[in-house]
Amino acid sequence: MTATATSARSDLSELGRSETALRTFLHGLPGVDQVGAEQRAAQLGTRSIKTTAKAEAIDLAIRMVDLTTLEGADTPGKVRALAAKALRPDPSDPSCPHVGAVCVYPAMVPHVAEVLAGSGVHLASVATAFPSGQAPLEIKLADTRAAVAAGADEIDMVINRGAFLAGRFKEVYDEIVATKEACGDAHLKVILETGELATYDNVRRASWLAMLAGGDFIKTSTGKVPVAATLPVTLVMLEAVRDFRAATGRQVGVKPAGGIKTTKDAIKYLVMVNETVGPDWLDPDWFRFGASSLLNDLLMQRTKLTTGVYAGPDYFTLD
C-alpha cells in the first residue's frame, strides 16, 4: 500500500471540539452511490478463488474469526467450550490455526479468560449496554471498565444510533472518546449498526466519526437487528479506513459481523479487502469476522481441500 505516500497528512483532531465542525466535515465527505457501490461489491463477489488460494483464504479466515456467542442463555460452561474450540477449532488437525478472538458478554469474560490465558487468542467483550446502547453514559462506561477488568482486551461498543440519526454527532463522538478512555489498553471496536443507518452515506459518516473519535476498529453490526453485515456496507467501511489512513496515517481495522455463514461468503470479504485496501489489512489485527456458525463451514471446506472428500456437520463440534 502506497496510497498514503502522496497524500498530505491532515490533523483532524480538532474536529471533535464542535458540533458544527463535525457536521461540516462529515457532510463534506464524498457521497456514496448505492447502485454503484452494490455493483462493485457484487463484482468482487464473482472472483473465483480455487485450490491453493482457497486453502490460504480459509486459514486466514479462521484466524480472523471472532467466535461469538451473545445469548441470554449463555452459561460459563457454554462459553468455556466455545473458548476451547477457539483454541483448537479442528482437534483432529494440529495444523489448523486458532481463531482471532472469542466474543462474549461482560459477565462471561472471566470464564473465557481462564481458558484463553496466554494463548494468543484475543478476548473480546461487547459492552456499552449492547446491543441497543440505550443506557446512561456512566453505566455504559462502567460496563466497559468491568469487561476490561475481567480480562477483555477488546471491547465492542455500540454507537448511539438515535443521536447519530438525529444529527447529534458530537454526542456520539464524545461517547466513543469516553469509551475509548475507559478501555485503557484494550482495543476498541465501534459497532455502527449499519442496518439502522439506512444509507451508505450514513455508513461512511459514521465510520469517519468512529475513527475520528479514536476507534481502533469499525464494526458493522450487533447481529441483533434484521440487517447485519453485507458486502457493500463493508466495502464502504473499507474505503473509509483506506481514506482515513491516507489522511491521518493511522490504520483502523474493520469487522463485518452477523450473517456471514459460509466459506464462500468469507472469501468474498477477503477478496474485497485484498482489492480495496490491500494486503495491509489481510491480517487478524486489521480484519475480523464476527460470526459463530461460519467457523464450522470453514473447517468443513478446509477438510475437503486436504482430504478431497466433502465432510458433514456431524464431524465438527457444535460449540
Binding site: 472472483r47 473465483s48 478463488i49 480455487k50 485450490t51 491453493t52 488460494a53 482457497k54 490460504e56 483464504a57 486466514l60 477477503l270 477478496v271 485484498n274 494486503p279 489481510l282
Partner: peptide
C-alpha cells in the same frame, strides 16, 4: 500475500 490461483 493473497494470490489468486488460476481459475480457467
Amino acid at each position: 500475500m493473497f494470490e489468486y490461483a488460476p481459475a480457467p
